[in-house]
């Protein structure tokens, strides 16, 4: 379903230290452990999808990378430096879009863009104007008058108009309408083509599926899966959707299938491990299939499986 994108990491960057390298990161807030031994590696030039439900620790990880939070344990390296110590040197080389942009009530959007740009070491004025036009942003409104989506656009324009190596995007499209989301995806694709490294935290799966070279899934402060979409799919069950002339009497007749569900119209949905697909086909033949779809796991399936949502009806409805 998802098109095969670029290879995981360009061989040329193998000699360089990864853009982001986190090992065993621990961050506690009082008695609450937000990050519990998190490992994350993002190669240079790669778009890395960072997935996880609300509260899993995505934003905490990003805030450690930005040097805002001081980790309790483990190491984090960013662009070859220490995110806590080398704040300024590193921040000249990155731009950040928060998920919930809070603007200064008295400052216009244009002022906020310039302020953030100047603090990063300058904006490309041509690119700024182009982005304002593409995102249909009115830069003269004051911070408080912007809707959520428009506040988001202010942060996106400020980040994309900066000439930086690394973009850290924390749910950047939250609040954007579908048209603007499409513009955003186009612009990110351009940034990617320029060789920028992008850490894209999101729970909009299509966005990550289209853009990301590699994906890490975080759960309760740990990375539970990481790899290219293909490699993750390799470990994940395929979805079978078949219409049968003869329904099976019991689910145990098809022991290699998981999450078997047969509806009143003899339509069977189930999942199967990739290496048992042949057995499944053989087992299903006696039931005389009149229609058959076998689909690779979508990112959404991967995500849902990781989080233990295995209801086949729920899986069948996701795209």
């Amino acid at each position: 379903m998802a098109p095969t994108t670029t290879p995981a990491s360009a061989p040329s960057s193998a000699s360089q230290e990864p853009a982001i390298l986190i090992e065993g990161l621990v961050k506690k807030f009082g008695s609450f452990t937000a990050l519990d031994g998190l490992d994350l590696s993002v190669a240079r030039g790669e778009v890395h999808g960072f997935l996880g439900p609300n509260g899993a620790g995505k934003s905490t990880t990003i805030r450690v990378l930005l040097g805002l939070l001081r980790p309790n344990g483990g190491t984090a390296r960013l662009l070859g430096g220490d995110p806590w110590r080398d704040v300024v040197e590193l921040h000249r080389r990155l731009a950040y879009v928060p998920g919930d942009v809070s603007l200064w009530p008295g400052l216009s959007g244009g002022e906020a863009i310039d302020l953030l740009g100047n603090l990063r070491g300058g904006l490309d004025q041509g690119r700024r104007a182009e982005l304002i036009r593409l995102f249909e942003l009115d830069p003269t409104k004051r911070g408080r008058q912007y809707s959520k989506g428009n506040r988001q656009k202010v942060a996106i324009v400020a980040a994309l108009a900066a000439d930086v190596e690394l973009l850290i995007l924390d749910e950047p499209t939250s609040g954007l309408d579908p048209l603007m989301e499409a513009v955003f995806l186009d612009e990110i694709a351009k940034e990617k083509a320029k060789g920028r490294t992008i850490l894209l935290s999101s729970h909009i799966m299509t966005e990550v599926e289209v853009l990301a070279d590699r994906v890490s899934i975080i759960r309760d402060g740990r990375i539970v899966q990481t790899g290219t979409l293909e490699s993750l799919r390799g470990q994940t069950r395929l979805t079978i959707d078949a219409t049968l002339a003869v329904p099976p009497r019991e689910a145990s007749e098809l022991s290699m299938l998981h999450d078997v569900h047969v509806d009143a119209h003899h339509r069977l949905t189930a999942t199967v491990e990739p290496d048992r697909i042949n057995d499944a086909m053989v087992a299903l033949t006696p039931y005389r299939m009149s229609a058959l779809t076998v689909s690779p796991a979508s990112l959404e399936d991967l995500f849902l499986q990781q989080y233990g949502v295995t209801d086949p009806a729920a899986q069948a409805t996701v795209r």
Binding site: G110, E111, L115, R142
Partner: peptide
């Protein structure tokens, strides 16, 4: 009513200007 603001940063373009303007 709130008046529209400048489309580009003058004073508020630096951190010192921002503190003053706020």
């Amino acid at each position: 009513a709130t008046r529209p603001g400048p489309a580009a940063a003058g004073l508020a373009g630096s951190i010192w200007g921002l503190a003053f303007k706020l």
